[in-house]
Amino acid sequence: MPETAGQTFIHTPTPGLPEFDYIKPASLTAASQFLAEHAGEARPFMGGTDVFVRMRDGFWTEKYIVNVKGLDGMNDVTFDPTTGLTIGASVNMNRLIASLEVKEHYPLLAEAAHTVASYQLRTRATLVGNICNASPAGDTIGACMVLDGTLHIHGVDGMRKEPLSTFFVGPGQTVLKPGDIATAITFPIPPAGYAAKYIKLGRNAIGDLAIVGVTALGFPDRGAPSGYRVRLALASVAPIPLVPTQAEAILAEKPITEATINEAAQAAMDASTPIDDVRGSARYRKLMVKNLTRRAVTQVWEQIRE
């Protein structure tokens, strides 16, 4: 177990991975059953990029590591002009980024995925894994939320769907239950005339975790008083990926001007509840929510009003 000195945690991972048994079930049903039967001592993995790190750290001590990659069509990217996009849970981020359908219809997904770590890590990392990992800093979660993604879950009772809006419970915590395996995420056809942007502030120019991440997706909407709707999602500024609804409401209701954007940015800042950590202070994070929300919304607005 990780060592502590009094109340202070000391990060002392082991040189290698702890002992566990590697399990590769033949089907989703078998996988769900195994995971449910070994609740608390079995963990599914996709890319493993977070699982292995946490096991070395001693945070996760499962006896069984269950490879759920490549089961029953989880390795596909499919696009249907009427129903939208499906990304299988095993699809790695580099494949996602390279997908022509993603590039053409959902470039925001590729843009966000591209900011994750490094190319070689993205060979292993998956979009669905990034979501299920439920890090408040997850770079792709915001994109999935503003694109209205739905997770497809295989559990002991069969398939079900989970909207992302209610999926996250806390840092690393989701509504998934023992036996649940996310098999894919689907996205509807995006709104006509939309534009979107992910702005990430990290320590390095490329490749770092987000100190703050802002995702914005805007589109013309006659139903909105302003004529537009802008969906927003914020990373690293709350225990779960945060949707600043007040800011969205301001942009829907008031004619979009520089002042309105500023007001929305301020509302996003007010909605955020970041913490101080080694990557940045809460104060700075809040200020950056404001500045980067303004920047992201302005860029989106400049594109959609044309």
């Binding site: 991972p13 890319g47 493993g48 292995f52 790695n92 770590a117 190319y119 070689q120 890590l121 292993r124």
Partner: peptide
């Protein structure tokens, strides 16, 4: 820990951190 890249190899045509 998948951070430094010194262990990078090509696995089935794509580079990976072999420690991961």
């Amino acid at each position: 820990a998948g951070e430094c890249g010194a262990c990078t190899v090509i696995l089935d045509g794509e580079p990976v951190n072999s420690c991961m």
